[in-house]
């Protein structure tokens, strides 16, 4: 809700910032979580997708063609090194606006995937 020129209007937060002449500050986090999983990287990502889909009822969980999984605005990617193909590194990236969900997901993945 902003008041300008003695009139009140309801606008979205992004618009309100703009009209007040303020800049938005984006705070983002990227975390690495290690998983032991003897599958290929795409299979591990698939397993993460199914796991999140079953745990996060009511959230939008998407498996995108570019090899990422998105939960709301949170992006997940899987990689591994040739030396240790069973040690998967999951990169999780989220913005402060999704802080609760982002920290929940990183602690969930730290516990590993269901068999």
């Amino acid at each position: 809700l902003i008041m300008k020129d003695s009139s009140l209007r309801l606008v979205c937060p992004e618009q309100a910032l703009k009209e007040l002449g303020l800049n938005e500050h984006q705070l983002r986090f990227t975390c690495r979580v290690q998983l032991q999983d003897p599958h290929s990287d795409p299979d591990t990502l698939n397993r993460i997708y199914s796991h999140l889909k079953s745990v996060l009822k009511g959230y939008t969980v998407q498996h995108l063609p570019d090899g990422t999984v998105m939960v709301e605005s949170i992006v997940l990617k899987v990689s591994s090194s040739a030396e240790e193909p069973n040690t998967k590194v999951v990169l999780l990236s989220w913005s402060y606006q999704d802080e609760d969900l982002g920290s929940f997901l990183s602690s969930l993945l730290r516990k590993g995937l269901p068999p």
Binding site: L17, H25, G58, D100, F104, L108
Partner: peptide, 14 residues
Amino acid sequence: PPELMSPKPLLSGA
């Protein structure tokens, strides 16, 4: 999982 939460506030400043 956490209940569907309202997002955190936007941030401003430097």
